[in-house]
Design a protein around this nucleic acid. Structure first.
Lengths: 195, 195
DNA sequence: TCCACCTATGCAATAAGTTGCATATTTGTA
DNA sequence: TACAAATATGCAACTTATTGCATAGGTGGA
């Protein structure tokens, strides 16, 4: 049950409304956790009932009212105790891989799907890289303040690059109906990896 | 609802029992989808009710009886129609990233957790690399037969390497309380990536 | 003015996934 | 012989996530 803690972590960094949180999940740091607006509102409600968060209504000139949530003392306590618990590697669940696994002799449909996904991941990477540029453009003090978020962004960038590489490689192999060749540095446990 | 289709894809490749499927998920191709045994048995039950699979009981000398499931005609039809649908990029949900995002000034606990995860991912990578070696050791005919599973394995290998790189980098930065430097090739959209 | 769209909030129903427990067989170990 | 461990199956309760719908105010364009 980490959506709860993801929200607490975000509110601990800066108070915000439900839709603020949704936007934070979608942009940049979205890579570190991900949720729909329904889930966020449900979880905020639950957190409110447990006294982990509180809110104030804030009127806006050009938009509907917001409920600006902030973390409470109890929320911080909860967060601290959760931070000490070990994490599990997330389960991998990508329908695209299921399809590649099961794709038949005719690769046309699959190649189209790989292209579609390539475009999506390329777009996501662009967004992450823009955020990275933005971070680098800040003063050292600001960069230090946002160092942890940047570290998670860095993971997002790596992840999308890795995905794009795999998509490109896989597309080529499926199109040419070719067998993959032994990669130059594979099989040694990764000690010689480039960093 | 892709666990259903992941199971159908596996059974389409080769019939098997519930615990066979769990083992396939855990080893190698486990990277392409992931489920606990409870989920697998529940889903097999549902698939049976929908006539997507059928089974025969198989006695074994040294172990309890198995129900060996195979995909039906209707199951293959279902699978074909599902293969044509577009996929969504999976949601990212890693509690470790939430913790890195929210970690406070004292990095000791976090560094220990990074080490713990590093060991887990290194072990998984080793397992994948062994499977890769096994694939390369086969005849060309066999390699061709298992090309698609190998392509998903390749994604697993890439994923774990990427994870390890990030873990190492992040550990160093947290330990030294240092600010990350601009990576040499970052910021251009990934066209110059190494493959 | 009407319509589409965006922000902002939320409810209700359903689907999917997790946790805890339970059973039976066999193999290996103390 | 007793006990732990692995295979093999499964139920029930609970939590989490998704899907579909709904409301309301403001923005911008045809």
């Amino acid at each position: 049950m980490s959506l709860k803690h993801a929200i607490l972590v975000l509110l601990d960094a800066e108070p915000g409304s439900g839709s603020d949180l949704v936007q934070r999940f979608r942009s940049g740091i979205g890579h570190f956790w991900n949720a729909t607006h329904q889930q966020v509102y449900q979880e905020l409600k639950a957190l409110l009932a447990e006294d982990r968060v509180e809110f104030e209504v804030e009127a806006q000139e050009t938009r509907p009212e917001k409920k600006v949530y902030r973390i409470t003392r109890g929320g911080r306590r909860e967060l601290r105790s959760w931070m000490g618990e070990p994490t599990k590697p997330p389960r991998v669940r990508d329908a695209l891989l299921v399809k590649v696994f099961g794709t038949a002799s005719d690769p046309a449909v699959m190649v189209a799907e790989l292209d579609r996904r390539h475009a999506l991941h390329a777009k996501q990477l662009e967004a992450y890289l823009e955020l990275e540029q933005h971070w680098f453009a800040q003063t050292e003090a600001i960069r230090r303040q946002y160092r942890n978020p940047y570290l998670t962004l860095r993971r997002g960038i790596r992840y999308e690059r890795e995905m794009l590489d795999w998509l490109e490689e896989t597309k080529l192999l499926l199109q040419e109906d070719a067998l993959p060749q032994r990669p130059a540095l594979a099989g040694t446990g990764g000690k010689e990896r480039k960093h």
